[in-house]
Measured scan of single mutants.
Amino acid sequence: KVMEIKLIKGPKGLGFSIAGGVGNQHIPGDNSIYVTKIIEGGAAHKDGRLQIGDKILAVNSVGLEDVMHEDAVAALKNTYDVVYLKVAKP
């Protein structure tokens, strides 16, 4: 199931950690970017929809399929206060 989640960045950013990407696979044979941690009190935690194990398909208009881990981190960092995440639920 794919959904779009709109998050408003807090003082600590979006409030979640990711793993995965080309050269840094979270699941062997899979280059996808996965949510590995939700920080308590952060934007994602308060919103409640993003969960550990969700796959991040895109940030705003930037696709995160088959990208390097660093590029995924940069895509999440290089955002304004309002961030749209395209997410696939497991």
Rank of each mutant, 00 (worst) to 15 (best):
G13T: 04
P90H: 10
G20S: 03
V82M: 15
G53Y: 04
V22C: 09
G29Q: 11
H45Y: 14
K9Q: 04
V22P: 04
L14G: 02
A43K: 04
M68K: 15
Q51F: 05
A88V: 08
A44F: 00
E4F: 14
H45E: 15
A72Y: 03
D66T: 12
V35H: 00
D81Y: 08
I33C: 05
K12R: 07
A43V: 13
M3T: 08
A88R: 08
K86W: 05
K6S: 09
D81G: 13
G23V: 05
G53C: 04
G63R: 13
K1S: 04
G48C: 07
I27R: 12
V83A: 12
D30H: 05
G23S: 12
S17E: 07
E70T: 15
K1Q: 03
A19M: 11
I33V: 08
D71A: 10
Y34D: 01
Y80N: 08
E4H: 06
L14W: 08
V82H: 14
N24A: 11
I5V: 06
V67D: 03
Y34L: 04
Y84D: 15
P90S: 12
D66I: 04
P90M: 11
G21I: 01
V73G: 06
T36V: 15
D71T: 11
L64P: 02
I5F: 14
I27K: 13
D54R: 00
R49Y: 05
E70I: 13
G48M: 06
L57F: 05
M3W: 06
K9A: 09
V2D: 14
G21E: 02
A58F: 12
E40Y: 09
G29S: 08
V59N: 00
I33R: 01
D30F: 04
L57H: 06
A72I: 04
I56G: 00
I5Q: 00
I27Y: 14
G23K: 06
D66W: 06
V62N: 15
S17R: 14
D54V: 03
E4P: 04
S17W: 11
G48I: 00
V87P: 01
G20Q: 03
V59T: 03
A19L: 05
K1H: 03
A72D: 01
V2C: 05
G15W: 00
L7R: 00
T79Q: 10
L50N: 00
G20V: 02
I52P: 15
N31F: 04
G10M: 06
L57A: 09
F16N: 01
I27M: 14
P11F: 08
L64M: 15
A58I: 04
P28N: 14
E4A: 06
A44C: 07
P28F: 04
L50D: 00
I5R: 00
E40C: 10
K55P: 01
L57E: 09
G63N: 10
S61R: 14
A19P: 00
N24T: 08
L64D: 01
V22K: 10
A58S: 14
N31Q: 03
V59W: 03
G63S: 09
I39A: 09
A43M: 08
P28T: 15
G15K: 02
H45V: 04
E70F: 13
E4Y: 14
E40K: 06
F16A: 02
N31C: 04
Y84N: 14
S61M: 10
D81C: 08
E70N: 14
I52L: 12
L7C: 03
K12M: 10
L85G: 00
A44K: 00
A72F: 04
H26L: 07
I27V: 15
G20A: 02
E70Y: 11
V62C: 11
I52W: 05
G20Y: 02
L50F: 02
K6E: 06
S61W: 08
I33S: 02
L50Q: 00
G23F: 05
L7D: 02
K1L: 03
E4V: 09
A88W: 08
M3G: 05
E40H: 08
D30K: 04
N31Y: 03
V87A: 05
M3Q: 04
G20W: 02
G15Y: 00
I33T: 03
M68E: 14
G41V: 02
F16S: 01
K46Y: 11
D71P: 03
P11I: 12
R49W: 04
D71G: 08
